[in-house]
């Protein structure tokens, strides 16, 4: 866990009470956050939740209406984008159409007054890093989506940012390419030891890549933590519903199933359907339920259940397990600890 060993005293990016309105809309509403150096940080949320505006506030394309932003301990309010030690990979890549791939990558070096030979060498090095050696002379229009994305990455990395910002960088790629780029981005980030701040609306992307995830809703951060924490212990109904799917139980319902008397979440895959030779966990609440619907989803089956007390639950069971019959009655076990009280709903 190198994240904690790096100087935690000065965060790579720090927000204190940052607010940004557009007219009457509070796009970002009092956000506090600290991103550690070398951390892969994901900002996750639905569109309009304020995550992209936060990224633009770090880059300097937006200025906060209130609050304070620091990058490596230096206040950056009022600094234009070109005076900030951060670089961005844009959602549409924003490659310069009139420049070759090589000149695109060398652009940041050119405006810093670095000579032709030196910047060509550095651009080649950066293109090699993203596995695009030999593409220098091409035009952006001649590249595939995945290649453009790599050029955008090389162009941002070649100027040695202290923080790399990525705005939905995988959104425009097809599924296979996206999975490939996910692991590549992750290993690139480890190798360079840079802070990556990554905006996405795709929860699986955030969970699989990030060291920590901040979940945004309506301009605020509703929960921040390592992916396991956010997934296992969602703090609010919103997080429980947005990050994966969850059964949300009221305080009384949670207490009835052996949990605390606090609104709680219950992940569908934690519910065990008994019988068929499955071992019952040692400490678990047991109850009976009627099977309302079963849908086959490849690796798992999704089973909609209704308890006699009128509680609707969804369970995910291995597809290889013998199927529950619609209309039949099953015995459920809910292991102790599967019910997670939602701290934000106390």
């Amino acid at each position: 866990m190198h994240v904690h060993t790096l100087s935690a005293a000065t965060p790579a990016v720090r927000f204190a009470g940052v607010t940004r309105h557009f007219g009457a809309v509070r796009a970002v509403d009092g956000v506090d956050l600290a991103i550690a150096p070398g951390e892969f940080f994901a900002m996750l949320g639905p569109s309009g939740s304020g995550k992209t505006t936060c990224l633009r506030l770090i880059a300097g394309f937006e200025q906060p209406d209130a609050g304070h932003i620091e990058i490596f301990g230096e206040a950056v309010e009022g600094l234009p984008p070109y005076r900030r030690p951060v670089n961005t990979v844009f959602q549409d890549y924003a490659l310069f159409p009139h420049l070759s791939v090589g000149d695109n990558v060398a652009y940041g070096l050119k405006v810093r007054g670095i000579g032709r030979a030196e910047r060509d060498r550095l651009a080649r090095e950066a293109l090699a890093l993203v596995k695009l050696s030999g593409m220098e002379a091409r035009r952006p229009a001649q590249l595939s989506g995945g290649q453009r994305q790599r050029v955008a990455l090389a162009r941002a990395l070649v100027v040695r940012p202290k923080v790399l910002l990525l705005d939905e960088p995988l959104g425009a790629l097809d599924l296979k390419l996206r999975e490939e780029m996910q692991s590549e981005l992750k290993s690139l980030q480890r190798a360079l030891g840079l802070s990556f701040v990554f905006v996405t609306h795709d929860q699986s992307e955030a969970l699989s890549m990030a060291d920590r995830v901040a979940v945004f809703n309506e301009g605020r951060i509703v929960q921040v933590g390592p992916p396991e924490d956010v997934y296992e212990r969602p703090a609010t109904r919103f997080v429980a519903g947005f990050v994966g799917s969850a059964n949300v139980l009221g305080a009384a319902q949670a207490a009835a199933l052996g949990g605390e008397e606090v609104p709680s979440s219950l992940r569908p895959e934690k519910i065990i359907l008994l019988g068929h030779g499955l071992a019952e966990p040692a400490e678990a609440a047991r109850l009976e339920a009627r099977v309302v619907e079963v849908s086959y989803q490849g690796a798992v089956r999704r089973v909609a259940l209704l308890t006699p007390a009128g509680l609707s639950l969804t369970a995910l069971v291995p597809a290889s397990a013998p199927g529950a019959m619609v209309g039949g009655t099953v015995q459920l076990a809910i292991p102790r600890g599967a019910l997670q009280p939602m701290e934000g709903e106390r």
Binding site: L109, R112, G113, E125, L129, V158, R160, A191, L192
Partner: peptide, 13 residues
């Protein structure tokens, strides 16, 4: 897989 680390010259101000 790495980039040589060094500080780029600051642009003329």
């Amino acid at each position: 897989m790495s980039l040589a680390t060094f500080d780029l010259p600051a642009p003329r101000d």
